[in-house]
Design a binder for these strands. Structure first.
Length: 103
DNA sequence: GACGCTAAAACCG
DNA sequence: CGGTTTTAGCGTC
């Protein structure tokens, strides 16, 4: 159920170049709001699976966000591999060189 | 109405 | 100094 709020988040995500990552707070501040918590919820529902790289969104400390770090499902692991292929290495659920890739 | 999700600050040893 | 934990608020279903 994409809402206006979610639509904004997805649009900003598509603006993130491959090989780079962003944070929930960054997206919130960028869209003019500070609901980074709601963004986490919105990305968790990500209806635009491949078009919206929710895997490029991580927490503010470079650690993987709620989309794939704790459960480590098989689908999630695949996304991590995809990130590495783009140039974003994820080790132990953390982004390697995160601040260097932060947009 | 309830739930989930993140960020920030403060505290301790 | 570092690491960890708790609190608070936002939006969605």
């Amino acid at each position: 159920m994409p809402t206006d709020f979610e639509n904004m988040v997805y649009d900003l995500l598509r603006n993130v170049p491959e090989g780079k990552v962003t944070t929930y707070k960054r997206l919130a501040e960028r869209m003019g709001t500070k609901a980074y918590r709601a963004i986490g919820s919105a990305l968790a529902r990500n209806p635009y699976a491949p078009e919206v790289p929710c895997h490029r969104v991580v927490s503010s400390n470079g650690k993987i966000g709620g989309f794939m770090g704790k459960k480590s499902g098989p689908t999630i692991l695949k996304k991590q591999n995809l990130l590495k292929d783009e140039g974003v290495e994820v080790k132990d659920g953390k982004i390697v060189g995160f601040k260097s890739k932060l947009v």
